[in-house]
Design a protein around this nucleic acid. Structure first.
Lengths: 189, 189
DNA sequence: ATAATGAAACTGACCAGTCAGTACCGTTAA
DNA sequence: TTAACGGTACTGACTGGTCAGTTTCATTAT
């Protein structure tokens, strides 16, 4: 049965996402994932080649969601400043909803994880590029001040991540507003 | 010998810092540290209780340097906006110089590392608090627009970190200028 | 002398990944 | 009806490698 297998695959992914989000890559055990999914450890290996593949499958899907949300927001026919605001709101939404998963991204950067998976860097670069494009567009249109669009895009991205790493889910809307306000106008009076 | 022991301790710390910075906590081996320091592995355990203590000793000192730099800059008798600029420059300088070490901070957050060492969180909180104080001061003085000082401080901190995680050392001054410009005035024209 | 050290061998815990065995199920044969 | 069969999914005890931390000992410095 095609569907049944797919269901189980998803269950494993969900369990793994929970465990990884809870413990991080290194501390998460395949036994934990199996226990959480309510299956035998060996079964995981029927569906995934190993711990890393499992890990990256999760990150990939989260990254894809982020990218898709940005692309959707970026496709709107709006003035650059409004478009940027929309994109940030969309990005913040995905990030806030997947907060525990997004934290996993931090764990990548050192050790072999990074080398094996240029894909995540690529996704990140794509996200930054989408923002940068709108910023550049706005700069050309005179809506934004001149400056390094890519650096700004990167800063906006990390700000958004950072804002939701620490904040209570309650304050989501307010935080998004603060974010947009902050990087549109800065703090100067 | 007090001084000699201290010297060796420092050598071990330096070697460990290099290895950790290069490989991250999990991938770094005590054997690597010993080899890099040119000493026997057993000797490390004469100076440090274990891998974690070694790791945190390094992070602590980096965190202290950051905090000290901020405090020094914050102590200047300047107008809030100038003071903030100075603080950011100081912070950026420390971060840029210790970039590989600062990256290690990312690895903390999950697993048992976090629980055992609230100290690093505390240091981070102190850094944010120092910035927030200046921002609040500036807001009261009417130099800065109203807004959540702590959130802004946090955003400035992560922006600064992020800016130097990715940037070439060459562009340090320019990056600091961009940073200050960005969070003082934002991108709006 | 004796204290500290480098080198190297060793121990034990830990854990990803394996695989021999089991359970389940649809199909065919008696 | 039901027994036997084959295929497939599943299980969890087990294996093998890794590595933190310990111990030992010959060497060096004090």
């Amino acid at each position: 049965m095609r569907t049944l297998q797919d269901t189980k695959r998803r269950e494993i992914l969900a369990a793994a996402a929970a465990v990884f989000a809870d413990k991080g890559f290194h501390a998460a055990l395949m036994d934990d994932v199996a226990a959480r999914a309510g299956i035998g450890k060996g079964t995981i290996y029927r569906y995934f080649a190993g711990k890393q593949e499992l890990f990256f499958s999760i990150l990939d899907s989260a990254g894809e969601e982020l990218q898709a949300a940005l692309a959707a927001a970026g496709a709107a026919a709006l003035a650059p400043d409004l478009k940027l605001k929309t994109m940030v709101a969309a990005m913040a939404d995905v990030i806030a909803r997947n907060q525990p998963l997004m934290r996993l991204l931090r764990e990548i950067g050192h050790d072999e994880l990074e080398k094996r998976h240029g894909r995540i860097r690529e996704q990140n670069r794509a996200v930054v590029a989408q923002l940068a494009a709108v910023i550049a567009e706005g700069t050309r249109a005179g809506v934004f001040r001149r400056g390094d669009a890519k650096l700004r895009a990167r800063l906006i991205t990390v700000m958004t991540h950072a804002a939701f790493h620490h904040c209570k889910p309650v304050a989501r809307r307010a935080t998004i507003r603060s974010l947009n306000d902050f990087f549109f106008h800065g703090i100067a009076a």
